[in-house]
């Protein structure tokens, strides 16, 4: 395997060092987009170079690439699925503002579409709306109770 000469590795190392200088110098300019590209974009380029030339992933059996990429994908999944929740937490009670907005919006749409407010829930609606009402009641119950997190559940 391999077949690379030491000179080749030194060449890669020189490229990596140049990239390092760029990634330090770029953010000094203070322009956000340049910072983003030089600091993080170059990190990916450096990682690619190390993987390909130092770790020999280009000549390794494909299954190794698959298992490494799979575990990276799981981390992407973790970030992608958790961040919409955690990124929107706010304040000491870590309330999810986006979720709250969605609930308020949904309730407003429901009120207009259904043509009924909370106060005129008569017997005539019982069959259809009992379920929703019940869920709402339960949620409100939690609000009063000791569960701080329940604010946006209903």
């Amino acid at each position: 395997m391999g077949g690379h000469s030491p000179a080749h590795y030194v060449r890669i190392w020189v490229i990596l060092c140049v990239l390092l200088v760029v990634s330090i110098a770029g953010p000094e300019l203070g322009i956000p987009i340049v910072t983003l590209i030089t600091a993080f974009g170059i990190a990916f380029v450096k990682a690619y170079l190390v993987c390909k030339h130092f770790m020999h992933l280009d000549t390794e059996r494909p299954i190794v690439r698959y298992i490494l990429i799979t575990s990276l994908m799981f981390m992407l999944l973790f970030f992608a699925a958790v961040s919409p929740d955690v990124l929107n937490h706010n304040g000491m009670r870590w309330e999810n503002q986006a979720a709250k907005a969605a609930v308020i919006h949904g309730m407003a749409v429901g009120d207009h579409g259904g043509g009924h407010g909370d106060e005129h829930h008569g017997e005539d609606h019982a069959g259809d709306h009992h379920g929703d009402e019940h869920a709402d009641d339960h949620g409100d119950g939690h609000d009063d109770g000791h569960h701080e997190e329940a604010a946006e559940e209903h």
């Binding site: 799981f74 699925a81 919409p84 309330e95 969605a102 939690h142 997190e149 946006e152 559940e153």
Partner: peptide
């Protein structure tokens, strides 16, 4: 099984769309 974990947190205040 990696795509289901948040069903343990439905009342923990996660986004209802999630």
């Amino acid at each position: 099984s990696f795509f289901v974990w948040a069903h343990h947190q439905f009342i923990a205040g996660i986004d209802p769309r999630m």
